[in-house]
């Protein structure tokens, strides 16, 4: 099947029955981590998507290949840096992450798949970055990295990398429900002078081309993501900000409660996919 078959006047709705377009190949990283790039939608999606698809399935085979071998994935340098930082003592307490959490690949294996997550003690939903900086400030007596900063993304990428292949399963109910609802509302709000919501492109028009760009479902299981476009790791919130900016809207800030809620909601749309971060995308 060719992409031209997909060209349609009525956008995404006609595509519901279409099989995978980009590649028949499965995503297996390093010949051993088997990814789920196409999954049944979670019940809380309420039929919004017929199939949940990883952003990997929308990319060219050249770009796809880069994610299949850590020696080719340009983000693995950051992962190495993040792992080194994990073991390095920092701050007034003279502690490293490892001093409390032990080996990253054991203690952090399920983190990326389950965050953002309700933190009972803090009484709020937290993403990984919030948790990292909380640890740095309150446990280590170190300076916070800051949202989507270079060292933050390196640490997040490292934590994600040891969770690759785990099935994304963020909780949307219980104490997280309120934040999730807020995220859902943001997802469907048409922002800016162009009056576009996340759904305008990533639910109604995924698989369509907007100029030369192949629209994906906007899944975030591959974050932090190395983008060929800017040749660096990109954080989820920075990506959200870029999208909202492109609707000619006043964006929210990275690390804002709005983006934490949106992160939880968008993550939940990908429940059933596997953790791919750091993925490689356009």
């Amino acid at each position: 099947m060719t992409l031209t078959t997909f060209k349609t006047a009525v956008c995404g709705l006609a595509l519901l029955a279409a099989p995978l377009a980009a590649s028949a190949e499965d995503l297996v990283v390093n010949g051993e981590i088997e990814m789920i790039t196409e999954a049944e939608p979670a019940a809380h999606l309420d039929g919004a998507l017929p199939t949940v698809r990883s952003g990997w399935t929308f990319r060219s085979s050249e770009t796809q290949q880069l994610q299949m071998d850590d020696f080719e994935n340009p983000a693995m340098i950051d992962v190495d840096n993040g792992m080194a930082a994990w073991n390095a003592a920092e701050g007034a307490e003279g502690k490293s992450c490892a001093d409390c959490h032990g080996a990253m690949d054991e203690s952090m294996e399920m983190v990326r798949a389950t965050y953002p997550k309700w933190n009972e003690e803090a009484g709020e939903v937290r993403n990984i970055q919030m948790q990292i900086d909380d640890c740095r400030v309150n446990q280590m007596g170190a300076e916070p990295y800051g949202v989507d900063s270079r060292p933050m993304l390196a640490m997040e990428a490292a934590i994600s990398s040891v969770g690759r292949g785990q099935v994304v399963d963020v909780a949307v109910d219980g104490p997280a429900a309120e934040t999730w609802e807020m995220g859902k509302e943001l997802y469907y709000t048409r922002f800016g002078q162009l009056e576009l919501s996340c759904a305008s492109c990533h639910e109604l028009n995924y698989d369509n081309y907007i100029r030369a760009d192949h629209l994906s479902q906007g899944q975030i299981n591959g974050f932090p993501t190395y983008r060929l476009k800017n040749a660096r790791l990109n954080g989820t919130h920075s990506r959200f900000r870029g999208c909202i900016r492109d609707t000619r809207a006043e964006t929210f800030s990275v690390g804002s409660p709005e983006f934490v809620a949106l992160e939880l909601y968008v993550a939940s749309r990908g429940n059933g996919l596997t953790v791919e971060g750091p993925a490689v995308r356009n």
Partner: peptide, 28 residues
Amino acid sequence: SVMPAFYKVEGFTRPGNAYTGKAAEGPL
């Protein structure tokens, strides 16, 4: 429709100053 309105200046949610990501200054 997802098509933007090309001759409309009011009634937007968080209208921005073109593609800067900042709030619009004055009428659009």
